[in-house]
Amino acid sequence: MPEKIDSYRDLVVWQQAMDLAVAIYQATRNWPKDELYGLTSQVRRAATSVPVNIAEGYARENRGSYQQFLRIAQGSLKELETHLLISQRVGIASSETVKPLMTHSESVGKLLRLLIRRLSSG
């Protein structure tokens, strides 16, 4: 039986998105300083946008708004993945760094899709 959801913090998708954001901050800590206001900032912003939009949507207490914020979170995930791939292509990040982050992002994306479907059918 699923646990009771009293807060957005109880959502596994939010928890996983928070873990991803923390992993992104750790991974980008050693990126070149001249990228701080470029790709580093973009990657971090996209990563933090995911749990923020999940939480904001939950707070709306309206199913349609909630789903829209979850879709925005999905968009931020795809933005994050694209920034990570760019960072790999330009030599800022190694494939060993990018691959687990991409896997984590894809996992969060699956959870988001499941939650959107559940809200659509319920």
Rank of each mutant, 00 (worst) to 15 (best):
Y8C: 03
Y8Q: 12
Y8W: 14
R9T: 15
R9P: 07
R9K: 15
R9A: 13
L11M: 11
L11H: 14
V12M: 15
V12A: 14
V12T: 13
V12G: 06
W14N: 08
Q16W: 09
Q16L: 14
Q16V: 12
A17W: 03
A17N: 01
M18F: 13
M18E: 09
D19N: 15
D19I: 03
D19V: 03
D19H: 11
L20Y: 00
L20M: 03
L20R: 00
L20E: 02
A21C: 08
V22H: 13
V22Y: 06
V22P: 11
V22F: 10
Y25W: 09
Y25V: 04
Q26N: 15
A27W: 06
T28K: 04
T28P: 13
T28I: 15
R29G: 08
R29D: 04
N30M: 09
P32Y: 00
P32N: 08
P32Q: 02
D34V: 11
D34A: 09
E35P: 00
E35Y: 07
E35Q: 10
L36C: 08
Y37L: 03
Y37M: 02
L39M: 06
T40K: 11
T40Q: 06
S41E: 10
Q42V: 01
V43D: 02
V43W: 02
V43E: 01
R45M: 04
R45S: 07
A46L: 02
A46I: 01
A47F: 00
S49F: 06
S49I: 13
P51N: 01
P51L: 05
P51M: 03
P51K: 09
V52E: 10
N53V: 01
N53C: 08
I54A: 07
A55K: 03
G57R: 01
G57M: 12
G57N: 08
A59I: 01
A59E: 07
A59M: 08
A59F: 04
A59W: 04
R60S: 07
R60D: 01
E61P: 11
E61S: 11
E61W: 05
N62G: 06
R63H: 01
R63W: 02
G64A: 12
G64P: 09
G64M: 09
S65L: 10
S65F: 09
Q67H: 07
Q67K: 13
Q68H: 13
F69I: 01
F69E: 05
F69R: 01
L70H: 09
R71G: 06
R71M: 07
R71D: 14
I72V: 07
I72G: 00
A73D: 09
Q74Y: 00
G75R: 00
S76Y: 01
S76A: 12
L77N: 00
K78F: 12
K78A: 13
K78D: 11
L80N: 05
L80R: 11
E81L: 08
T82E: 05
H83M: 10
L84Q: 12
L85K: 13
L85P: 04
L85V: 10
L85C: 08
L85H: 11
I86H: 06
I86M: 05
Q88R: 15
R89K: 15
R89E: 15
R89C: 05
R89H: 05
V90P: 04
G91D: 03
G91V: 05
I92R: 11
A93T: 11
S95D: 13
S95Q: 14
E96L: 11
T97Y: 04
T97F: 09
T97E: 13
T97H: 11
K99M: 13
L101S: 10
L101M: 15
M102N: 10
M102D: 03
T103H: 10
E106H: 10
